[in-house]
Amino acid sequence: MNRRTKRRIAAAFRFGFLGASLFAVGFPIYWMIITSFKPDNEWFTWPPIYWSENWTLDNYRVVWLGIQARITAQEAFTMQKPLQALKHSLALALISTTLSVAFGTLIAYGVSRYRILSDRRMFNLLMLRMIPPIVVAAPLTLYYSALNLLDTLTGLVIVYVITTIPYTVWMTKSFIDEIPHEMEQAAEILGASRWQTIWEVIFPLIRSGVVATFLFILILTWSEYLLALILSKVDVVTLPVQLSKYEGTTEGRVYGYQAALAVGVTLPLIVIGCFIRKHLVRGFTFGMVKR
């Protein structure tokens, strides 16, 4: 076997593998999307319907606008609140992510330049992330109800910030570490204060990294399920919790509705993901890789 055939075989192998992976990853997502456009008699059939001939927007109308063919709109509106859930999910994800990234970046700067946390503490910080949320859910309910924080956005924001801060610190630190200290020394000579240095020198340099971190944390908070389920009651409802409500019993599971809601829940993240994919690689090394 000469080298060219060998190389060809290797290439064929490589692209075969990539193609198979593409299918394995893409097919479930394709299925979710296509189900959301299928009429109800095609959700669940044998043989499966891989490509629908009867596209419909009904599922979206039902879950997002509350319009249902079989009952009046007034009834439907009182029961599901997807738009409210969307509003709450957005507010929750944006506020907690902003706070988490702001606090995290400052700490990361402190660690990188002033070593305000030792290496050991930095690693201990990661531990915060590793406590399964279920572990604290019950006492948190009791504690929050005493403080009137149950069923409020504030309450959830606090928990989300705490559980995501370890990632923000670690991710942004890896960006700050890459900035040569000379930049700050120059700023100092020019008479800038510490805060000015952070804001006017450091921040512009790590902006893309901060954006990547921000969006990654947004993904985490957007999809959080357990705490949102337990710490919310009437006033707050998030999309993942809303999603779990579509377990119709007499009608069988309403796959089409679920899929239509799921596409709405997932789409923002996919759009965001496509924006940050370049930055993700940089942010995800947690300083374990030097460039």
Binding site: I219, A262, V265, T266, L269
Partner: peptide, 9 residues
């Protein structure tokens, strides 16, 4: 993509 998909979904 899978990482961006909500676990419940």
């Amino acid at each position: 993509l899978p990482m961006l998909t909500v676990p419940v979904v």
